[in-house]
């Protein structure tokens, strides 16, 4: 475990109890229902924030390592839009109760993964792979818009749009049961990809000369990103920018090798989503700010700052 993991791990340990107490109503441990609220509302929400953030952080670090591009984001693979399309279809068909919505979303993520693997084939280079992902994202986005436009009534449309904004409101242990095992498995797969990502630092040809097998690495990336991002979207909707921001914050604290960025990015992602969700709860707004919107409000200016920084460096 490197120093970045330890640092963000300690911060996460500090933020976790705070997030349990914070909210529109701050919990007083002496109130009769405190235990119930903590165990059935706040704790699953916090665990879910940690889970989704960890998955998005690790997937972002892996994507940036794979594409050798600090502007890469897990969304580029089209898996999140695929999962969103599945979820939107379930809402549209009125099959969103219980496990149906997450199941539809996971099927959507799986479909996007399968399509990506099919298009990329055995011998595709990274550029073709990325373009295939972008095409899938675009197609899934278009189909999502079509589904929204075909909504039977304004209420259904509003429900879909609100869900797409991404949030952890009213989530339960059932959602944790769906997302946590898949995310842990996904992060484990991405960690296995670490050495291949290290080799890719030197470019594709040099990486292959070091024994990196492109098709094997691609599979690890598809499965790892599919599980982490797909399960996240399945329970919380679209939550963007975590995978973009987090690796940037963590990278200066590592030795530069992509493998060393994966675990601390997972921990820092967990911290970011946990804190962002806590802020959504305590901000004095009429309705609770959606987590996906909050992170986009932070992420978009960050992305712009990053672009300007890179432009200055290239000048």
């Amino acid at each position: 475990m490197n120093r970045a993991s330890i640092l963000f791990g300690l911060l996460l340990l500090l933020a976790l109890p705070l997030s349990l107490l914070a909210g529109r109503v701050w919990i007083d441990a002496t109130t009769p229902n405190a235990t119930l609220i903590l165990l059935e509302l706040r704790l699953p929400r916090a665990v879910l924030a940690v889970t989704i953030g960890a998955g998005l952080g690790a997937a972002g670090a892996a994507m940036q390592g794979y594409l050798r591009n600090p502007l890469a984001d897990p969304g580029l693979f089209g898996i999140a839009p695929g999962a969103a399309l599945g979820a939107v279809l379930s809402l549209h068909l009125g099959l969103a109760a219980g496990w149906f919505l997450p199941a539809f979303a996971l099927i959507g993520a799986g479909g996007a993964m399968a399509l990506l693997a099919l298009i990329a084939g055995r011998s595709a280079g990274i550029a073709l792979f990325t373009l295939a992902g972008m095409m899938i994202a675009s197609l899934a986005g278009a189909l999502t818009s079509l589904t929204i436009s075909l909504s039977p009534n304004a209420f259904a449309m509003s429900e879909i749009v609100t869900w797409l904004m991404g949030a952890l409101t009213d989530r339960s242990w059932a959602d944790v049961q769906i997302a946590a095992p898949l995310t842990v498995l996904g992060i484990a797969v991405l960690l296995i990809a670490g050495k291949g990502l290290d080799a890719l630092t030197l470019g594709e040809a040099a990486a292959r000369s070091l024994g990196m097998q492109p098709a094997h690495l691609r599979w690890l990336l598809i499965i790892g990103t599919g599980l982490t991002v797909g399960s996240g979207v399945a329970v919380a909707g679209i939550i963007g920018f975590v995978g973009l921001i987090v690796p940037h914050l963590v990278r200066p604290l590592t030795d530069g090798r992509p493998s060393q960025l994966l675990l601390p990015s997972a921990i820092a992602g967990a911290l970011l989503v946990l804190v962002a969700d806590m802020l959504c709860r305590i901000l004095p707004l009429v309705t609770e700010l959606r987590l996906g919107i909050a992170l986009s409000l932070i992420g978009a200016p960050f992305f712009l700052w990053l672009l300007l920084k890179m432009r200055r460096e290239l000048a």
Binding site: K195, D198, A199, L200, T201, G203, S209, L210, G211, G256
Partner: peptide, 27 residues
């Protein structure tokens, strides 16, 4: 058995000389 140095020595992420050399131990 075969070390290969491509024409354009690419390095996507900045790292120390030692960590760069350590990539040679991946196989």
């Amino acid at each position: 058995q075969v070390g290969y140095l491509p024409q354009h020595g690419e390095l996507a992420w900045d790292m120390s000389v030692r960590h760069l050399a350590a990539l040679g131990r991946l196989p």
